[in-house]
Design a protein around this nucleic acid. Structure first.
Length: 805
RNA sequence: GCCGGUGUGUCGGAAUUGGCAGACGAGGCAGACUCAAAAUCUGUUGCGGGCAACCGCGUAUGGGUUCAAGUCCCAUCACCGGCACCA
């Protein structure tokens, strides 16, 4: 009898063997086929690893280990996205340098990941806060700046009146400061921006050539929010200036009954003298500017606004005069900051018109049916047909749009225009713990980039990490660092004191892994050419819109610069579901349902944790933790362990197990590729159950099981392999092959139905012909088959259905 | 409100994409081992009826297509996640 399965004795031992052997290092042999598997690198928080982390890491560890056994040169790296607010806040609170906090947290994370037996190539570990790393983050920024894609702009920020600090949106909870609970207002500050909007079309088009799960593609497209419409110039009565608006429904131009401009619209100030109710307008504008984003959202339903007394717009298609209103439901940041209002065919305009008693004119009718636009706006484009609209009457919406645009362009009063919801990326943070922005401001030369050979621009040591009273970054207080000379004219200049956001370092990290120690470039050309694109990238749904979009943007920019060889960074993108607490709620300290992976590793072992997290349910859906489920997986591994007592010396698969073996290899092989880890494990459990039913396993059957199980449970399988003296290591073995012909049983059980209801099952030879199967089926049914047979259906290998009346 | 996702035993979840619903795991029940418990092993386990072979009902709800529907179509409901007036 073998001694019991003791994970504590074997897991550390094998982790050391893998480290000593450098078992999982990617080689620089670029002639081998490559496979680049990537998981999102974690932010090393003070809480340590969460049980949610191992889910994606194990999934791609399985893929990476399997690919190595299939002969690929695999790159499966890990690193640390270590800049960020929580570290800085912790540093402020505890008066420890963020660098020290990061170091401690990274050490803890690394130890925890190590204890789970991942096959990461630790020689390629990176950290976004290393100056050797952020040198290249800064280098990319300089490139962007030189290409005109980085610019400064006045932007409103969230400002805590009590802490006197700018806050990220995530720090504003219900309109108040997360930390002190005081009021948060908007304050205008000059910020660095990146022109991601310039890449909007490329970011949409690029999605066609990549293999992302559908919902990721959909949310990327929605976030970019491309809409095709038209800009139209409305005359302002008695003025030279035109009021330019953006619309996606230029077909409804004949239904315009009023106009709306946003409270920030420049015409308000420009035509101040003509506006008779200026005081009212100013008051409204004040009120609107005070509203936080939160309040605007809260009051979304209730429209407010003021009619401008003194300005009138003229509809360019019919010469009709309409009033101009000011309302905060029109945003300055989208389109032109002004709209034409067609209450009959837009819900927001309809609500506004109802509230202020403005006329509603129908210009689109539903396909032959009456619609009462006084009851609700009619917005259906698919069935709409134009009415009351002069030269476009009777046209469908789509054709009416085309014709109207032709008309507008011909008359010079408007043109087709594409707009995006996507905003440029606010790239400044008034914080210490981030990459310094390598720009100086010279009185004479303006913003000047520092020279590339001065990179990295090191983050200087400061006395305090607290932001300053006026909302500047702590770096602003360091006068001897801030005051410098202009690289251009040599005159006095000041350094930029804002730092980059956390998204910066994570926008290109996958490039650095390919060649992490390169001093001359962010990575060598040859390495980039070989390893890119990432073959499979897995990460959370929460990063679909920001991180994924930002990194695709940088990558596309670098591609245009000739720095990287592919236009897309990631060939395949998948997302995992969250792991919830036992009660089905999100794990959190306050709910008291947090599970610490260290405890599971200690009590059950890393292999059990890995197996359980893969078995817990469909990979892309969220799943609730269950300690009983963990025990079940441990029990399975114990049963695998004890198989060693019934293994024979026999080669090959035994006759009665042959089909099952081939079926299992096939199932496990394909399930590992398609995120169906749970059913792959179920198949191996079922195989083990069959071994016990027979109470014997041949050497080759056992070896095959060990190799297939190895990616999931690497420690126990190495131990069993070594105990049995099979020679070498499991990780060096070749992934088992199956024979398609041998996955089919020689006799199959098929269902026999009468009128679609199963009445019996019969065993038939797999190649039995239709007639004989049907006659066997009828024989089996005997008396139960009554009435006239109308139809006989035979689906080979599956079912016989006799239709009788 | 819009976008996306999900509804299957007591629970987590399977179902080769239209072909025997409930694989695998958990839990329950019964038994073996044990002084006993735990662990382990064996059997059983969707609901209802029948001694039984069997029969009826069952995949959120209502309808439809089909020889055959968890799977396809139409409508409805519930829950989860994201976004908030994007003209």
């Amino acid at each position: 009898m073998a001694s019991g399965y003791n994970h504590k004795l074997i897991e550390g031992k094998w982790q050391k063997v893998w480290d000593d052997n450098k078992a999982f290092a990617a080689t620089n042999d670029f002639s081998k086929p490559k496979y680049y598997a990537l998981v999102e690198f974690p932010y090393p928080s003070g809480q340590g690893l969460h049980v949610g982390h191992p889910r994606p890491y194990t999934a791609l560890d399985i893929v990476a280990r399997k690919r190595r056994m299939q002969g690929y040169n695999v790159l499966y790296p890990m690193g640390w996205d270590a800049f960020g607010l929580p570290t800085e806040n912790y540093a402020i609170k505890n008066k420890i340098h963020p660098k020290e906090v990061t170091k401690t947290n990274v050490a803890r994370f690394k130890e925890q990941l190590h204890s789970l037996g991942y096959s990461f190539d630790w020689d390629r570990e990176i950290n976004t806060t290393d100056s050797d790393y952020y040198k290249w983050t800064q280098w990319i920024f300089l490139k962007l700046f030189k290409e005109g894609l980085a610019y400064k702009k006045e932007m409103p920020i969230n400002w805590c009146t009590s802490c006197k600090v700018g806050l990220a949106n995530e720090e504003v909870v219900n309109g108040v400061c997360e930390r002190c609970g005081s009021e948060v207002v908007r304050k205008v500050k000059s910020e660095w921006m990146l022109k991601i909007t310039e890449y909007a079309d490329k970011l949409i088009e690029g999605l066609d050539g990549v293999d992302y799960i559908e919902r990721v593609k959909v949310s990327q497209k929605n976030w970019i929010g491309r809409s095709t419409g038209a800009e139209v110039d409305f005359a302002i009565k008695g003025k030279e200036e035109k009021l330019r608006i953006y619309t996606t429904r230029c077909d409804t131009l004949f239904g315009v009954t009023y106009m709306v401009v946003s409270p920030e619209h420049p015409y308000l100030d420009q035509f101040k003298s003509e506006i008779k109710n200026w005081d009212e307008i100013v008051a409204y504008r004040e009120q609107a500017s005070k509203k936080s984003d939160f309040e605007r959202a809260e009051l979304a339903k209730d429209k407010t606004g003021v009619c401008i007394d003194g300005l009138t717009a003229v509809n360019p298609v019919n010469g009709k005069e309409v009033p101009i209103w000011v309302s905060d439901y029109v945003l300055m940041s989208y389109g032109t900051g002004a709209i034409m209002a067609v209450p009959a065919h837009d819900e927001r305009d309809w609500e506004f018109a109802k509230k202020f008693g403005l006329p509603i004119i129908q210009v689109v009718a539903k396909d032959g049916e009456e619609v009462d636009v006084n009851e609700a706006a009619f917005t259906d484009v698919a069935t709409g047909v134009l009415v009351n609209s002069d030269f476009i009457n009777g046209l469908e919406v789509k054709d009416a749009k085309t014709k109207m645009i032709e008309f507008l362009e011909e008359k010079g009063i408007g043109q087709a225009k594409v707009n995006y919801k996507l905003r440029d990326w606010v790239f400044s943070r008034q914080r210490y713990w981030g990459e310094p922005i390598p720009i100086v401001e010279c009185e004479k030369c303006g913003f000047v980039p520092i020279s590339e050979d001065e990179l990295p621009l090191l983050l200087p040591e400061v006395d305090s990490y607290e932001p300053t009273d006026n909302g500047e970054s702590p770096l602003a207080a360091m006068t001897d660092w801030v005051n410098t000379t202009c690289p251009c004219c040599g005159g006095p200049a000041k350094r930029e004191t804002d730092t980059m956001p956390q998204w910066a370092g994570s926008s290109w990290y996958f490039l650095r892994y390919t060649d992490p120690t390169n001093k001359e470039a962010l990575a060598g050309k040859e390495a980039l050419k070989y390893w890119l694109p990432v073959d499979w990238y897995n990460g959370g749904m929460e990063h679909t819109t920001l991180h994924l979009l930002y990194s695709r943007f940088w990558h596309k920019f670098l591609y245009d610069q000739g720095v990287v060889p592919t236009s897309e960074p990631y060939q395949k993108r998948t997302s995992h579901g969250m792991i919830l607490g036992e009660n089905g709620e999100k794990m959190s300290k306050s709910r008291g349902n947090v599970v610490n992976p260290d405890d599971i590793v200690r009590d059950y072992g890393a292999d059990t944790l890995r197996t359980y997290e893969m078995f817990i349910g469909a990979f892309d859906l969220s799943a609730s933790w269950s300690e009983d489920g963990v025990k079940g997986c441990r029990r399975f591994l114990e049963r695998v362990w004890k198989l060693q007592d019934i293994v024979t010396d026999e080669d090959g698969f035994s006759k009665d197990m042959e089909t099952k073996m081939h079926q299992t290899i096939k199932k496990v092989s394909s399930d590992f590729e398609s995120l169906k880890y749970n059913t792959a494990i179920a198949a191996m459990m079922s195989l083990v159950n069959d071994f016990y039913k027979k109470n014997t396993v041949t050497k080759d059957e056992f070896k095959t099981l060990i190799v297939m199980l190895n990616p999931v449970a690497p420690h126990i399988t190495e131990e069993l392999w070594s105990l049995k003296n099979y020679g070498g290591y499991v990780y060096e073995q070749t992934w088992p092959e199956y024979d398609e012909a041998k996955t089919v049983e020689s006799t199959v059980e098929i269902a026999v139905q009468i009128n679609g209801k199963t009445r019996a099952t019969v065993a038939i030879a797999k190649d039995a012909d239709r007639d004989s199967v049907i006659s066997i089926a009828k024989e089996t049914l005997g008396d139960r088959l009554t009435g006239n047979i109308i139809k006989e259906i035979y689906v080979p290998g599956k079912i016989v259905n006799i239709v009788a009346k």
